[in-house]
Design a protein around this nucleic acid. Structure first.
Ligand SMILES: Nc1ncnc2c1ncn2[C@@H]1O[C@H](COP(=O)(O)OP(=O)(O)OP(=O)(O)O)[C@@H](O)[C@H]1O
Length: 747
DNA sequence: GTTAAGTCCATTTTT
DNA sequence: TGGACTTAAC
């Protein structure tokens, strides 16, 4: 029996249909991703295709890794030479080789959202735009959607000129400036990665030919969420052999807000007239009840491609629907339910996922889970690599690696404080501009810049520091380099001295960064600093999910796409939250509501065995209490599928008592890679320090600090749970710290 | 140039 | 509610 016998008939057809354009259109859990994996294996194993000629595009880096792994399990060889990656990573790979042909240096830097924003701020300042009226964010949004549609600054300007909209013209102008600035910095933003690749392939026949000849077979997962630029990219790459297989579900298109164009999938047969369409109809993931619920919700959308979806699985339990008075009770219920399920041996923590519409909702669950000692991991929110402390240290590494990223250099020039302020930065910047050199090169010539005067003496040590690191680069490992950066800059020391929970969380993140460097070094045969920085630039939070770890996963519905869990909670199912207030009130409300409904469909279909839907009558949203009705999507589920342990009854006895027991606040930053519940809780409690009755020192006493050395106490302020002590140190100056952290010794 | 206090304002979703 | 940004004081 071959492995292809584990597929059903339609799936097998999709696997065997290797030639020409193919659209696999199918509902959730029908094995689309599985088909792609087997199809790739089939190409290699049965068709004798060289893995080198196969490209597979996935939605996340994690999915790419998994696909490669599974192919490897089936075929046993060659999987490493298949091109499996996301759109963004693929483009970076192509551009690193060939972008010089369109006027960039191949070691361009990639700007993340933060970087783009600071660049935009500069530009608005330069163009004297009143950012109270025209917001940076709105410019960035306009530029981003232009790029998703492959619209150049010139084209945008032309469009703007035909309308009399002043704002549009401003946008086009800013777009042009923004692109020029990026070019000058030899940088690309996220959307550029795709657009520039398309530009490259369109303008350079040689490069286009090279890649067309490389990719004989191309496959794209989650095709319903591709945008116009990505479509064009695929069309170009597949232009020669036309062996393009796309896989998707129009009912799961949920990324319109970032440019996804559902017509890519709806019109696939028009784009590729000889396309073969294959539909998969059997769902292997969920129980009948769950599938029925999902089907009845999505049936309320119009203009869908017709699809059947059935399952041979059991009917399963009814969907547990619970309404609570507050979000606290909701979180409490879910926490108890999980704890109970694990206690009974029904599930492991890792079988559970809590899904919600907005990241802000994670907070209540986090607080509750800490109290209940439930191990969890929050996916999403602020990307790990976007956190201040991580970005600071990465900026050091970037600057050491090559100081061409002006933004990175500027970021760390005064971190830690070196007494270099905005004025100096601007003057150096002007100087760099007028001599057409990089910011860092200008810093090196600080003495020659007349306008900065004595500030030059402050810049010198910084440049020296970087040069010293550079000279070490070839002798020490990346992790040791990072350790030295941390040591020399006193970054962690400073945080330690702060002594707050937040600072502690930042230190943990820095440790985490260190271990990521170490694991990069271990995984790579020839680890390089540039290689590490590259890897780090495009990771999404979801990539850090580990399958074999035993923790409850909390994430937004968007992040959950493509995943599955034995038991799923859909929390906050309230009108105004989900569907969101924005979608209900906007002027193209019906369209937006359909997208929200698709999101609900995605959420419901993540569940394999059990689904719990919860909502709260009242909920705190940005400091205000909102009263919400049960989500319309819940009402679209037939009543007979719903059950509930305590449906729609208010539970008096738990009213206020719950809120009052919640006094353990989680740290401000979500920890990465939640360890076991036990140590998590231990740490959470460890941060609640007890105030000492009386301090062993007083104002004007001489004291000793483990890091800062000797100093004199200048002030002691009694705070809520601790004393805040201000000390004038002999060497490092004045520092404020909490007594219980600083552990000062009286001399 | 740095820091503390004070004001405004926005909240979907993210590679 | 709290984060981002501005203003005022050191
Ligand atoms: N022929 C099959 N026999 C047994 N199990 C299958 C079969 N096909 C798929 N499955 C299982 O069904 C589940 C869903 O498969 P997969 O993730 O590939 O679906 P999908 O269509 O990509 O889902 P989604 O659209 O939700 O991303 C997986 O657990 C997979 O192992």
């Amino acid at each position: 029996m071959s492995i292809y016998d584990t597929l059903n008939e339609q799936q097998r057809e999709a696997v065997y249909q290797t030639e020409g354009p193919v659209l696999i259109l199918a509902g959730a859990g029908s094995g689309k991703t599985r088909v792609l994996t087997h199809r790739t294996a089939y190409l290699i194993e049965e068709k004798g295709i060289n893995p080198y000629h196969i490209m597979a595009i996935t939605f996340t880096n994690k999915a790419a890794g998994e696909m490669r792994e599974r192919i490897d399990k089936i075929v046993g060889f060659g999987s490493e030479s298949i091109w499996v990656s996301t759109f963004h990573s693929s483009c970076v790979r192509i551009l690193r080789r060939h972008i010089d042909r369109i006027g960039f240096d191949t070691n361009f830097t990639i700007y993340d959202a933060d970087d783009s924003k600071s660049l935009m701020k500069d530009i608005c300042k330069r163009l004297e735009i009143d950012t109270k009226i025209y917001k940076e964010k709105s410019f960035l949004a306009a530029i981003s959607s232009a790029k998703d549609e492959l619209i150049t600054p010139t084209e945008l300007m032309q469009r703007a000129l035909t309308s009399s909209d002043y704002a549009k013209r401003k946008q086009a102008e800013v777009y042009r400036e923004y692109q020029e600035a990026l070019h000058k910095n030899n940088a690309l933003d996220f959307d550029d990665l795709i657009m520039k690749t398309v530009e490259l392939l369109q303008s350079d026949p040689e490069v286009k030919n090279y890649y067309q000849e490389r990719f004989h077979y191309i496959m794209v997962d989650e095709y319903q969420d591709t945008n116009t630029a990505q479509f064009e990219l695929i069309r170009l790459l597949a232009g020669k052999y036309q062996n393009l297989c796309v896989v998707g579900d129009d009912d799961q298109s949920i990324y319109k807000f970032r440019g996804a164009n559902i017509y890519n999938i709806l019109n696939f047969e028009k784009h590729f007239p000889d396309a073969k369409t294959i539909k998969l109809e059997q769902n292997y993931r969920s129980t009948q009840n769950i599938l029925n619920a999902a089907n009845s919700v999505i049936a309320n959308n119009v203009g869908r491609k017709s699809k059947t979806l059935w399952t041979a699985n059991d009917e399963g339990k009814k969907i547990d629907f619970e309404q609570f008075n507050t979000g606290y009770e909701e979180a409490d219920y879910i926490a108890r339910d999980i704890a109970g399920g694990v206690r009974n041996g029904d599930y492991h923590y890792g079988d559970y996922a809590v899904l919600y519409r907005t990241n802000a909702q994670s907070r209540l669950f986090e607080e509750r889970f800490i109290v209940s000692n439930i191990p969890y991991k929050i996916v999403g929110g602020v990307n790990f690599y976007a956190r201040k402390e991580v970005k600071d240290l990465l900026a050091y590494l970037k600057t050491i690696d090559n100081a061409r990223d002006d933004l990175a250099v500027r970021r760390i020039l005064n971190v830690p404080k070196r007494g270099i302020g905005a004025t100096t930065v601007n003057r150096v910047s002007d100087y760099a501009e007028s001599y057409d050199i990089s910011f860092y090169d200008a810093l090196k010539r600080a003495d020659e810049i007349p306008s900065i005067g004595k500030a030059a003496s402050k810049v010198k040590p910084f440049v020296n520091l970087i040069q010293v690191f550079r000279s070490k680069l070839e002798f020490i490992s990346i992790s040791d380099l990072l350790r030295e950066v941390i040591e020399e800059t006193g970054y962690v020391k400073e945080l330690e001295a702060e002594g707050t929970d937040e600072a502690e969380a930042r230190i943990e993140n820095i440790d985490e960064l260190l271990s990521k460097v170490v694991s990069y070094e271990e995984s790579e045969e020839h680890p390089t600093l540039s290689g590490f920085l590259e890897e780090v630039a495009l990771v999404a939070d979801i990539d850090s999910l580990e399958d074999d770890s035993d923790y409850v996963v909390l994430m937004t519905l968007h992040s959950a796409k493509g995943l599955e869990f034995p038991k799923v909670y859909l929390a906050g199912m309230e009108d105004g939250l989900f569907p969101s207030y924005m979608s209900i009130t906007s002027d193209d409300s019906s369209e937006q509501l359909e997208e929200e409904r698709r999101l609900a469909y995605v959420g419901i279909t993540r569940a394999m065995k059990e689904l719990t839907i919860t909502c709260a009558k009242q909920r705190m949203i940005r400091g205000e209490t909102q009263y919400n009705k049960v989500s319309r999507f819940v009402k679209e589920i037939p009543l007979e599928l719903l059950g509930g342990k305590a449906p729609v009854v208010s539970r008096k006895e738990s009213d206020s008592s719950i809120e009052n027991t919640w006094n353990v606040k989680p740290k401000r930053m979500t920890m990465r890679q939640q360890p076991s519940g036990q140590s998590m809780q231990a740490r959470a409690f460890a941060s609640v320090h007890t105030k000492e009755e009386k301090l062993p020192y007083d104002i004007a006493d001489r004291v000793l600090h483990t890091r800062f050395g000797e100093g004199t106490v200048v002030a002691i302020v009694e705070g809520g749970r601790d004393y805040e002590v201000t000390v004038q140190f002999d060497t490092v100056g004045i520092k404020k710290m909490f007594a219980s952290f600083a552990k000062l010794k009286k001399l």
